[in-house]
Design a protein around this nucleic acid. Structure first.
Lengths: 369, 369
DNA sequence: AGGCTAAGTGAATCAGGCC
DNA sequence: GGGCCTGATTCACTTAGCC
């Protein structure tokens, strides 16, 4: 049974834990096709040539960690392709991946994603509302980072909570550029020495939007470059399961402590706006069977077309017969037509769309469970 | 003498003309190290599978030209590396290149640039103020394109007119994300049939900013994918010399006619380039993403109503869910409601309207420009 | 002229379920 | 998996047309 296999894979997964070690080896040890989403913030391979000072001569605390050093583009590519391959194996067929980077590495990552068979869905720009300025006046303020969102393949039925994102954006569909502040203030984790615990901690708001957009409650989210665990913290809040992989003990310790403090949001708060497709399908014929519309009754369209209802739930127009959608499309010369909103009938002297009858049936269904 | 060599090369250049033919062959025929800047808008290699209709059933006029078709990523890469190699040969040692693209091609272009020895200076995001929406609700609105700005090598003393850009941006350092409208209206070139002359004409404002930033008057600017000649038109306005290369006779004809009409710089034109500074819209969902309000938290109204916040920035009340405005209006039995002033939350023991949080975000945004 | 409404359009990798 | 059918889905801006 498929269900049992799923269950077995799920049980084998070390959910809601931080794995220690190299992400490639750790991913290879996990069961294939077991993860719904991967969020990855890999090393950026910054090519910094020396210390950078602000105009007031203070030193900029740049990323100079060992884990960000690669000998060449080729070495970086080899590393990138290896972890992407391991990541792809882990994803369920309908799974997806997000990778974030800057101009130093994102183009190599993007090309590798395509070469490995991922299917790009969007590139999303995180537009920082408070970036570090360019102190020397030699370039544009580096005010954004780029995220790539890709499904496992071009055939994948990836998750996208369109209505929820549209709600987040007050009724307008969400764009590919997101304006969000960088992570600082109380959210920025500090070590015992008061220094920032991780040089590139991502803001929780960014992960919130990523996870609301592309996962559902109960999904498994894996982050192979876990760092201080922003992915895990937000996943926990949102009722998603998570797995982190991190090499550095210091980061693991900070992440574990951080996530332990996180409270999950109430179940009701996790519900988001749902698409219409999620509602039960009501065949048009049911309206006729139930006597809401009589065979022989005439339906009309806003454009002045008309057709008659038949006993089997089909319509017949001037030179056409078929479903409410087919007849509407034919009469309009359109490639398709939503008959529910196209066709109208008369009730109490008013012209109303037949969709109100469908809504009536759906309301009844909801009441009776 | 270096000066003489420069002069000789410059004289051999076919300045302010459109060369006909394949850009690789044409570039190879020009003298090396003779060009100050290259602006390239190569084919994006869109992989469209079928017709797309808008919700009103009208057909989207997609880019399906032959010149955008490639057999595979490998074929696209071969093409890309060939023209980049020819372009690099043409550049003076301190020259630079801009390439524009979308997620379909820009990652491959970026990786190839690095592999060919170009040195990335910035990636710049063109945020379209009026992009085409995603009609099926399957992805984020594809609301931006990416430009890469790179010098010929990491040793190049490239041109960057920092102060001019800062002035263009009202005294604030220019960022790597530029908000500009797409090219339409009177600027959009039409053919004799009234149809758009080119499917992907770029706005002059974009080229204006590129050329002001990275060239000086008298510099030579080459565009190997000239199209309808936006680069040439803006270069002429700004007193730069230009060279275009274009395969298609139709495009060449339109471009030549267009550029002939252009007059050199007119100060009034600069005024239109200034970004608008309207009060930014802040979706309520951003308060949730940013952790200013917690999913599950209760909001109250002065009239004693209450509702709970959900993870997607919608509210859920007794028998209603939706935006802060919708739920407020419903609970009051009013036709509309300003949720920002209607809903309140508790902070430091005091009841305050959620609008204070919006003001807080706007203050942050104002600081960052 | 001016104000209003309707129609048109832009680099797009744009469906899902059932039989 | 293929074929067939249902039915869900858009934002900002420009231009044309009408009053």
């Amino acid at each position: 049974m498929t269900k049992m296999t799923d269950l077995k894979s799920a049980q084998a997964l070390p959910l809601n834990t931080i794995l220690e070690g190299d992400c490639i080896a750790e991913m290879e040890a996990l069961p294939e096709a077991s993860v719904d989403l991967i969020f990855a913030d890999p090393p950026y391979n910054l090519q910094l040539k020396g210390a950078l000072h602000r105009p007031d001569n203070s030193l900029v605390d740049a990323v100079d960690n060992d884990w960000d050093q690669f000998q060449s583009f080729q070495a970086y590519d080899t590393f990138t392709r290896a972890w992407l391959k391991a990541a792809r194996r882990l994803l369920k067929p309908n799974g997806a991946i997000w990778v974030i980077g800057s101009y130093h590495n994102i183009f190599r990552v993007g090309a590798a994603l395509q070469d490995e068979g991922f299917w790009m869905l969007n590139d999303v720009v995180w537009r920082k509302s408070n970036p570090m300025p360019n102190f020397r006046g030699k370039r544009f303020t580096n005010a954004h980072e780029t995220m790539i969102w890709a499904s496992k393949s071009d055939a994948a039925k990836y998750t996208f909570n369109y209505e929820a994102l549209k709600a987040l954006n007050e009724g307008i569909q969400m764009r590919s550029d997101w304006v969000l502040p960088i992570c600082n203030g109380g959210e920025r984790l500090k070590g015992a020495d008061g220094q920032k615990a991780h040089p590139t901690q991502k803001p929780e708001a960014l992960l919130h939007r990523v996870l609301v957009a592309s996962t559902n409650p109960g999904d498994v989210v894996l982050d192979p470059f876990f760092g201080t665990g922003t992915t895990g913290a937000v996943a926990k809040m949102l009722g998603r399961d998570w797995i982190g992989i991190e090499r550095e003990a210091d980061y693991r310790a900070v992440a574990a402590e951080r996530i332990a403090k996180v409270r999950k949001f109430d179940k009701a708060a996790l519900e988001t706006m749902k698409p219409k497709r999620a509602e039960p399908r009501v065949p048009f014929g049911q309206l006729v069977e139930r006597g809401m519309l009589r065979p022989g009754e005439t339906l009309t369209s806003p454009s002045g077309k008309s057709a008659k209802v038949r006993a089997d739930g089909t319509l017949v127009g001037l030179d056409v017969k078929g479903s409410i959608h087919q007849v509407g499309a034919h009469l309009e010369g359109a490639p398709s037509c939503n008959g529910w909103t196209y066709w109208h009938f008369k009730r109490d002297g008013k012209i109303v769309p037949i969709d109100v009858l469908r809504q009536q049936i759906r309301a009844e269904m909801a009441e009776s469970g």
